[in-house]
Design a protein around this nucleic acid. Structure first.
Length: 707
DNA sequence: GCCAGAGTCCTTTTT
DNA sequence: GGACTCTGGC
């Protein structure tokens, strides 16, 4: 029985599905059936007789690719086995591993995750004695940011710092040194970070013509999702894979671009028709996801964007209920109100049809406590990844050592569990293991530290009797058990449970190397749990592409959403706006924004007043219903009232030094906030400024113009 | 010289 | 809560 595509799709979607030859660009507004289009196109291709192995589907997460393939299999009633699907990074990893010889890593390479890269940076800085003893020297995190931003945006470090971190100008030379040494270190130890995966694949495609031809032949049909969040290398990779056939369909929405911080370049999608000659552009504008009142509100969020977007989404789904904006007394009571709202909604929806979204992972803390207390199951996405948890990394480092005895990162981690062994001793032991004549020293150390002897014996034993990954993990976990209980006396049972999960995931793999690669590239062991009936907590970034019946967004206040870090650059604030747009457009039936009036400051234990997010303040009154937490508890309806006075001063940085007499500094102008009154100077290089309508800000002097 | 533990500061987003 | 620095003890 064949599928009635015309019946199942609207004309624009149908057009996209039917056009299988030549380049296609689908501009798909939020909720416009983008996934559906890809799914049906997959099915259509296969129905036309295309071998599934000739299809490549690149998505933003591996989960998304799997889901689309699965849905296509369902409507098609047959397997799509052989289709390549995943993220750019996982595709690159797989391709590079099959061609280690051609890329100059004959004995393979090890993939670094963020933590590994940071550790290398930390060690390099120490070795190079950069900023020795300087407390205000940029952190490894910041340095790595500059290095990878420079790579992802393909601009010099100098340019990146000048544009995005002007206050770090004096460190540019150090960053350049670090970047260079980091590159050397990786090459020397056969390591690759996330960026290298893309650049090495790019290089391979450009330099190795036979392989390029081979891949072009193999992948006759390419689809790329979330194209607005690709960067320059990714665009080149697509171009080189597509080759002359150019049977490539890119899908995306410029209004939903939220990964500029990672080098994503909206120009990729806007200029796509220039790169692929003869591109057919198809626009999907009807929204099938949200009820009209939600779209009315989200259209307003976009309408105020500086870069104008040529879209106004519309829906057939009517509703007489407006989105709610709920003012709570504090962020702690916000948690309680959210729980109440979730309970109320859960009478109508299943728990996994409800999501609570936030800007940053740590913001769900109060809420998680409240949910646990009341016994509501939840599932968190974003924030700390499973494989980044310390105990998981511990177990992984042993596995890495099983595969590669030259993995210095892993040795460092493994050996530092031994009492009395620190960085220096680790280096010596490593040296002794890999140079002739090191046996004497090594023997001495093995005698001195029984744990070292145990570790080396265990590793030898595992290597001598190779088994399936799950068996190896079980051995490693048994070895690690005493270390775990000693290292985490407070919560080792919980961590242990996490490790059991690791072992279970490993059961699906027959090869340890693939397992470790997948784990670093979006390993999501909680996948199974999603089917359980659990409330979803997620960062907005991780909510991309998903939808829920009801969406609650917490901490819609200044410095949180938008993030404090976005205030210095207009383009960053614009991205926050799109982020808010993405968050709100996840909602199908019901949307609730929470605005706490105070935020608990963990640093000094005081609750500081908070101002509503500008994205909330600018919304016209008719687009939402305003509710206010009463001091007696419960919510009061306050439909017509304006938000509270926005000029309420607040003391943001009690610890910072304020030198000048308030009121005597005059006025200034800011690109985003307009004219403001300078209240004080904050040493060394900032001002505290009151902007009418926006409230108090602390802003770096270079970003304001004194008037 | 090296390690371990105490004290201090600051918290974005992800492959 | 984690990352980093500082300091005392071996």
């Amino acid at each position: 029985m064949s599928i009635d595509y015309e019946q199942e799709l609207n004309p624009a979607q149908y057009e996209a599905v039917k056009t299988t030859e030549g380049p296609v660009l689908v501009i798909a507004g939020a909720g416009s059936g983008k996934t559906r289009t890809i799914v049906y196109r997959l099915a259509h291709l296969v129905e036309q007789g295309v071998d599934p192995a000739q299809i490549l589907l690149l998505t933003f997460t591996r989960k998304a690719a799997q889901e689309m393939l699965h849905r296509a299999e369902t409507i098609l009633g047959r397997s799509l086995h052989g289709t390549s699907g995943g993220t750019f990074h996982s595709f690159a990893y797989a391709t590079l591993r099959m061609n280690t010889h051609d890329i100059g890593y004959p004995s393979g390479f090890t993939l670094l995750d963020r933590g590994d890269s940071e550790s290398i940076i930390r060690d390099l800085r120490k070795d190079l004695e950069l900023g020795k003893g300087d407390k205000s020297y940029p952190k490894k995190n910041t340095m790595l940011d500059m290095v990878t931003k420079s790579r992802n945006k393909e601009r010099t470090i100098d340019a990146i710092v000048e544009q995005e971190a002007y206050h770090l100008t004096s460190y540019v030379e150090d960053f350049e040194t670090i970047a260079e040494e980091y590159g050397k270190y990786k090459r020397h130890h056969a390591l690759m970070d996330y960026d290298d995966l893309l650049f090495e694949l790019d290089r391979l495609l450009q330099e190795n013509e036979p392989l390029r031809n081979q891949l072009q032949m193999r992948f006759r049909y390419i689809m790329v999702d979330e194209y607005q969040d690709t960067n320059l290398v990714q665009a080149r990779i697509v171009k080189n894979l597509a080759g002359k056939n150019g049977n490539v369909m890119a899908v995306g929405d410029d209004a939903q671009s939220i990964y500029a911080f990672r080098g994503a370049n909206v120009a990729n999608i806007l200029e796509y028709p220039k790169i692929f000659e003869g591109t057919k552009v198809i626009r999907l504008e009807q929204n099938y996801r949200s009820v009209q009142p939600i779209l009315t509100m989200t259209n307003h969020i976009l309408a105020n964007a500086h870069t104008k977007f040529d879209k106004k989404l519309f829906s057939d789904r009517q509703s007489d209920r407006l989105p709610e904006i709920i003012y709570s007394i504090s962020d702690q009571t916000q948690a309680r109100l959210v729980v109440d709202k979730v309970i109320e909604l859960s009478r109508k929806y299943l728990l996994h049809e409800i999501a609570v979204l936030f800007r940053a992972g740590y913001q769900s803390y109060h809420l998680e406590v409240a949910l646990t207390r009341i016994g509501i199951k939840y599932q968190k996405y974003g924030g700390i990844r499973f494989h980044e948890a310390a105990h998981v990394k511990d177990v992984i480092c042993y596995l890495r050592l099983v595969l590669n005895s030259h993995d210095t990162m892993a040795w460092q981690r493994a050996l530092e569990h031994i009492k009395g062994v620190g960085p220096k001793t680790v280096a010596k032991i490593y040296e002794a293991m890999h140079t002739d004549g090191g046996e004497t020293y090594l023997g001495k150390m093995r005698k001195k530290h029984a744990e070292l002897d145990d570790l080396l014996n265990e590793l030898d034993a595992i290597r001598a009797t190779p088994g399936k990954p799950s068996a190896t993990i079980d051995r490693v976990m048994a070895f690690y058990q005493p270390i775990l209980t000693q290292k985490y006396p407070d919560d080792y049972p919980k961590r242990q449970a996490g490790l059991e999960q690791l072992s279970q995931i490993a059961a699906n793999y027959s090869d340890l190397e693939t397992f470790l690669g997948d784990l670093s590239l979006d390993g999501d062991p909680d996948e199974e749990k999603r089917k359980d009936n659990a409330l979803v907590l997620s960062t907005v970034h991780s909510s991309k592409g998903l939808e829920w019946k009801a969406v609650l967004i917490i901490d819609c206040v200044e410095d949180r959403f938008p993030s404090k870090k976005s205030l210095n650059r207009p383009e960053d604030l614009e991205e926050e706006r799109r982020l808010m747009y993405v968050a709100c457009t996840r909602a199908m039936d019901s949307l609730h924004l929470f605005v706490p009036k105070t935020i608990y400051n963990r640093y000094n234990g005081v609750s500081d007043p908070a101002l509503p997010s500008p994205f909330v303040l600018e919304l016209p009154n008719h687009t939402f219903e305003r509710l206010q937490e009463a001091y007696s508890g419960g919510l009061e309806r306050k439909r017509r009232e304006r938000p509270p006075s926005m000029a309420a001063p607040r003391d943001m940085e009690k610890s910072s030094t304020t030198t000048t007499d308030p009121g005597s500094l005059g006025f200034c102008r800011h690109k985003i906030f307009g004219k403001g009154k300078i209240i004080a100077r904050v040493e060394p290089n900032k001002y505290r400024i009151n902007f009418p309508g926006f409230g108090l800000k602390v802003i770096i002097e270079d970003y304001v113009e004194l008037i």
